[in-house]
Computed example of a mutant assay.
Amino acid sequence: MVVDQFYECLGARNWVFHDSLSLDRVEALLSETSDAASAEERLIDLYRDEEITQWWLSQIRKLDGMKHRWHQVERAREHYHAGQFDSCALHLIAVMDGFVNDFEPDVRKGLVSRDPEGMTVWDSIVGHHLGLTHVLKTFGKTFKKRIDHEVFDLFRHGIVHGSVVNFNNVVVATKAWNMLFAVADWSVATAKASKPVESKPSWGEVLSALERQKRYRQYKDDFQPSQIAAGDSGFDTDELVARTTQFLDAWQHGRWALVVPFMQPEGRGVSGRKAGAFQARELYQRYNLSSFQICTVSYTQASSAEVVADATVNGTKTRITFRMVLYTVDGFAGMPGEDGAEWRLAMSSPQQFFP
């Protein structure tokens, strides 16, 4: 089994196989490497692929307690891709501690305060004996004195309390991402286990879902990449050009509540809108957009497109590039013309837009 092979190779190095990892990709990296160090390097490469991790993050963003800390997750991602690995790890430690603390309000225990054995989940891939509970023992290890040599594990206690001082490397930062996804899986499995068994979907619902899957597969098979540029016939009436213009106009005029619908799907309650507007302001207000001109929209793959625009930001003319994804109301990849499907930013943080 691929999961067992993964843990045989990487379990001792404190990596967790979480639900977002592709079995095919992991099987390939295990078969194409001869030792644990090489497999670890290949695994880290997966996390450094922004398109792959963007999809993983879209699956956990809507979790209650996670979406409220999404500005921290975005900041961690900015720092990770900028090579600021120590600050990335610190942001993610704070996110995990707070998320677990909020998960069970009656318990009110952060991640480091919990008994690792008490976080065992049986209906989840992270419940492997070398999975989350195993890694948490390293995560919570205490240090009585300063450690000056470089470490390659996520020692939460030593990092937060200043005992571990040399952890600014891609391995520690990536293990923080790895653990974030594992903790998210734990929360989902734990919540599922506490709920009564739901009734099975009706045949009509099953058939409807299967038909939708069939239509989406056909859409992907038939998709042909294309590009439309300023000055081309139909450019001004193109749906995504119009949608992108609305986003950039809201950014330019500081209408943060209007920026929220272009960010990734999440709850739309009143508190959600207010929190979203605050998050949008935090992300965008330091980038003063005073003018913009959309140059091209490239439909590069199904449900996804790349937008290139000339802009003036903080008084400097520059070129910005960002990806848009067509999302359904449930947060999955959508199809053109599908009810409720909207184009949204693949990455909400504007720092990723600049060369």
Rank of each mutant, 00 (worst) to 15 (best):
K145S: 14
K145D: 12
K145G: 06
R146A: 08
I147G: 04
D148S: 15
H149I: 03
H149L: 03
H149V: 08
H149K: 09
H149E: 07
E150S: 13
F152Q: 14
F152G: 14
F152V: 13
D153Y: 12
F155R: 01
F155N: 02
R156H: 04
R156N: 06
R156E: 02
R156G: 02
R156M: 05
H157E: 04
H157R: 00
H157G: 01
G158E: 02
G158Q: 02
G158C: 05
G158T: 03
V160E: 05
V160I: 13
H161W: 01
H161Q: 00
G162P: 02
S163T: 08
S163A: 10
V164W: 01
V165A: 07
V165Y: 02
V165M: 03
V165C: 04
N166G: 05
F167I: 04
F167N: 01
F167K: 03
N168P: 03
N169V: 11
N169H: 11
N169F: 12
V171L: 09
V172T: 11
V172F: 08
V172R: 05
V172A: 13
A173G: 08
A173Q: 05
T174L: 05
T174F: 05
T174I: 06
K175R: 14
K175E: 11
A176Y: 14
A176S: 15
W177V: 04
W177Y: 12
N178Q: 09
N178F: 07
N178A: 08
N178K: 10
M179R: 06
M179T: 15
L180G: 13
L180A: 13
L180V: 14
F181A: 12
F181R: 05
F181D: 10
F181W: 15
A182E: 06
A182Q: 13
V183H: 14
V183E: 10
V183D: 15
